[in-house]
Amino acid sequence: MQVLQVQLEIRPDPAEVGRARRWARSRLAGSGIQADEPLAETLILLVSELVTNAVVHTGRPAVLRLTLPVLVAGVRHPGESVATVRMEVVDGSARPPRPRCADGDETNGRGLALVDGLADRWGWTSEGAGKRIWCEVDRCSAGNTAAAARDTAPSAYGDLAYEAV
């Protein structure tokens, strides 16, 4: 499997969040992740949260990096069941990310909780005078359809049916 790594420089301006989402959407499509896939929307939400945190909480430029698996002719090789999309935001602030608990009607404070809930893995490391916040999302291949079907099949809980998406 081939891997593509792309990056976008982010200015410390809230308008950059929308630009980062548009840029990421085009890069995802170029790697074979279609806009109508649930994975694409999850990744765009993660881009939005991480870039927003960098812009709002540091007030400094940042770099968004995506590492994307690229399907050659739309086919995975035998034995490849999972491809991982990695996203990183590197900023110039040494201040570590701080998860918060937002109360009721608060409009801020849920970003890292969303990242924790949507990503398969996430974390951060010091990077020079700043830090790197990263997350990864696994993309199952068609060869792993049984597990994918099991994970997305409606389940019963008491008298309620629900679907994990």
Rank of each mutant, 00 (worst) to 15 (best):
R100T: 04
R60I: 01
R100Y: 02
L28H: 12
L114E: 03
R139V: 06
R27H: 13
E127M: 05
A54T: 05
V89H: 02
H57S: 04
L45S: 08
G143W: 03
L39V: 14
S141R: 09
I33L: 13
S31R: 11
V51R: 08
G158K: 08
D120T: 05
E136I: 06
R19L: 13
E41Q: 14
G117H: 04
V47R: 01
A147C: 09
Y162F: 15
V72D: 12
R139I: 04
P38T: 08
D159G: 13
A113W: 02
P99D: 03
R98V: 08
G143Q: 06
G128R: 08
W23G: 07
R98H: 06
S31Y: 15
E136G: 08
E41H: 13
D151E: 05
I33D: 13
A156L: 09
M1C: 02
R139Y: 04
W134V: 03
E106Y: 01
R76M: 09
G143A: 10
G158A: 11
P14D: 06
A54G: 05
H57N: 07
A142S: 11
L64P: 10
L71S: 07
T42E: 07
M87Y: 05
E88P: 03
G32T: 15
A20M: 14
C101F: 09
A142G: 10
R150Y: 11
Q34C: 15
A94N: 00
V56M: 04
D138F: 06
L71D: 09
V47Y: 02
L4P: 02
V55E: 00
R60C: 04
V17A: 12
N108R: 11
P69T: 12
G74Q: 11
L8F: 01
V55N: 02
P78A: 15
L43M: 03
R25T: 13
R86V: 07
A148I: 07
D36P: 06
T84S: 10
A161N: 13
M87G: 05
N144R: 10
E163K: 11
L118M: 09
C101N: 09
R121Y: 07
R132N: 13
D120Y: 02
R95S: 06
C135H: 03
N53V: 01
R132P: 10
S48C: 01
L4Y: 01
T107C: 03
V55A: 02
R60L: 13
R95C: 02
